[in-house]
Simulated scan of single mutants.
Amino acid sequence: MEKNENVEVAADAALVVVDVQKGFADPCWGRRDNPAAEGNIAALIDAWQGSGRPVVFVRHDSTGPRSPLRPGQPGNGFQDVVEERRGKGAGPELLVTKSVNSAFYGEPDLDAWLRGAGVRQVVVVGVQTNMCNETTARMAENLGYEVLFPIDAMHTFDATGPFGWTLTAEELARATAVSLHDGGFATVVSTADVLRGVAAGAAGVG
């Protein structure tokens, strides 16, 4: 992954951590990509909390009767990498619950919370790259936010579509990155790019 030299991270940028839940370890989802995702998500949460920036934790409360993400099931809970970090930051924190793809259609109202805090830039990470992450990023841009999308701080799964077409998780992640970039929905970056932006801001040069 190429280095992006000029990723500026606003002092009040919000990190939106989408659906990093235990249920996504269930074999029903199939093969996934990017085993480094959880470590990169953890590094970003640590950087946000250490700098006092706002963090939003999003949880998918599935309405599907067989989904491992439905409320009351162990899979509905956050993975340890997230749960052990909740409430540990110096900055504001929000828990949003949803039952659809976009974090902007949940409770409480994410857009209202961000606007109330004066936030204009969001960084989207979590699960799944081409589903809730991509939908949240697209809607954030439509609502007027600047969106950073660290493609290596998320993962997805192999999928089968119409006409017998199949795509691997890696192909889906690449398609998401190209679609968001080409459509102007987000700046697709790496975790390292974002961490450098946070460090530059702390040094007073970003």
Rank of each mutant, 00 (worst) to 15 (best):
P108A: 11
L172M: 15
D33T: 07
I151M: 13
N4K: 14
R196H: 12
V56W: 09
G75R: 01
F157I: 02
L172R: 15
L172T: 13
W48L: 01
G183S: 14
E171G: 10
T135C: 12
D61N: 14
P92S: 13
V96F: 06
T191P: 09
A25Y: 00
Q79F: 04
A43V: 03
G164L: 08
L180F: 08
L167A: 15
A37K: 04
R53I: 05
W165C: 04
F157R: 02
P68M: 04
G77A: 15
Q21K: 11
D26K: 01
G52V: 02
N101V: 00
A43P: 05
V56L: 09
A42D: 13
E38L: 14
A13V: 08
S190C: 09
L94W: 06
G197T: 09
Q49T: 07
T97Q: 07
D61L: 04
E8Q: 13
P54R: 10
L110D: 10
G87L: 13
V205P: 00
S190F: 05
D111A: 14
V194H: 07
A36W: 01
G52H: 05
L110N: 08
G89M: 10
D158T: 03
P74C: 09
G23S: 01
L110C: 12
S99V: 01
A117V: 00
L44V: 07
V205C: 10
V189C: 15
S179W: 02
G23C: 00
E146N: 00
G91R: 07
